[in-house]
């Protein structure tokens, strides 16, 4: 295996007594797309900031590109591209200018930055917006511009903190497509998300984080195999009845989760579970058989849903 580009060992970040990150360890290989999946407040962004060499760790070990962020902050940052959770583009400058000033921060010559800026505007599909004001862009366009800005130095690792949060479905798909291209080109991606579909789309491997600790680690499919069944039957009986019904169907499938609005029955074959429910004389208002997802993995590991 090639030398990992990120090595975190028992990484801790404390704010006074509260441990936002409480001893997490992981490694990311070059070219790998690695995800931190967890609900809001799980410690994902804090981990990202430590890897991004802008937040000093409280304890543990961290090496990014073989360097210690405490000693080589600017050096590490020179090889990173960072897409923060909230856009921090300079709204006082125009679209292309944002790329120009940012490229200079990496000590790149003006001509090279200008060339790179034009390439990236094309990549981000923002060529005709080059002279626009940043505030005139849609949310999706701003995200793409932020990604373009993060790529100005041709980074070894791209850090993406909740890249598609707050975007509409179409904008998300455009963004995923761009990120997928980067992945194909061999850029190492480290991303946080609380969207399971995003993690499944983009991550080769991921860790599930909750309350600052890692709950599980693996490839999305492997995690689903380990922690969930192949299929899930979702049935709704109405919020008042779900709990009562759950008692009646106890023992069906591999496992049952009762959520406030629905019951999940984990099974290798969802259809046959549905047949058994109907045979038991119960009539759900709605029923749905779907494949297990990372959401189910998370539910299994923490007893909570990702988006609450």
């Amino acid at each position: 295996m090639p030398e990992p580009v990120i090595v975190a060992q028992s990484l801790v970040k404390k704010y006074k007594d509260f441990a936002a990150v409480d001893g997490i360890s992981f490694e990311v290989a070059p070219g790998e797309s690695f995800g931190l999946l967890g609900p809001n407040g799980a410690g994902k962004s804090t981990t990202m900031r430590m890897v991004g060499a802008v937040s000093t760790r409280t304890d543990g070990n961290l090496r990014v590109l073989g360097l210690d962020p405490n000693r080589y902050g600017p050096e590490i940052r020179s090889r990173l591209g960072v897409v923060p959770q909230a856009d921090n583009l300079d709204t006082e400058l125009r679209v292309r200018e944002n790329l120009l000033v940012y490229g200079r921060y990496f000590g790149l010559p003006r001509a090279q930055v200008a060339r790179r800026a034009d390439e990236l505007l094309a990549f981000a599909q923002l060529e005709d917006k080059a002279k626009s004001k940043v505030d005139a862009l849609s949310g999706g366009m701003k995200r793409r511009l932020t990604i373009a800005r993060a790529l100005i130095n041709d980074p070894s690792i791209l850090l993406l903190d909740e890249p598609t949060t707050g975007l509409d479905p179409q904008a998300r798909h455009i963004l995923w497509d761009r990120l997928f291209r980067l992945k194909e080109q061999g850029t190492t991606l480290l991303l946080t998300t609380h969207y399971m579909d995003e993690a499944e789309q983009l991550c080769d491997r991921l860790v599930v984080i909750d309350k600052g600790v890692i709950m599980a680690e693996g490839a999305p499919a492997q995690l689903i195999r380990t922690y969930s069944s192949r299929e899930v039957l979702e049935v709704r009986f109405g919020s008042d009845l779900n709990a009562d019904v759950a008692a009646q169907i106890a023992g069906m499938g591999d496992r049952i989760e009762v959520l406030p609005d629905r019951i999940l029955i984990y099974s290798e074959n969802g259809e046959s579970e549905l047949v058994r429910i109907v045979e038991a004389g119960l009539t759900p208002i709605t029923s749905l058989v779907r494949r297990s997802s990372l959401e189910d993995v998370f539910l299994r590991l923490t007893g909570r849903t990702l988006i609450e």
Binding site: G66, L67, D90, V101, R104
Partner: peptide, 28 residues
Amino acid sequence: SVGDRAIRSTRRTRRWGSWYVAEHRFRV
């Protein structure tokens, strides 16, 4: 190594970073 390359490529910013920020401010 990547780390070594990073160290070398950051020398300019270590030295001139303040001026790059000034450049940004002039644009603003």
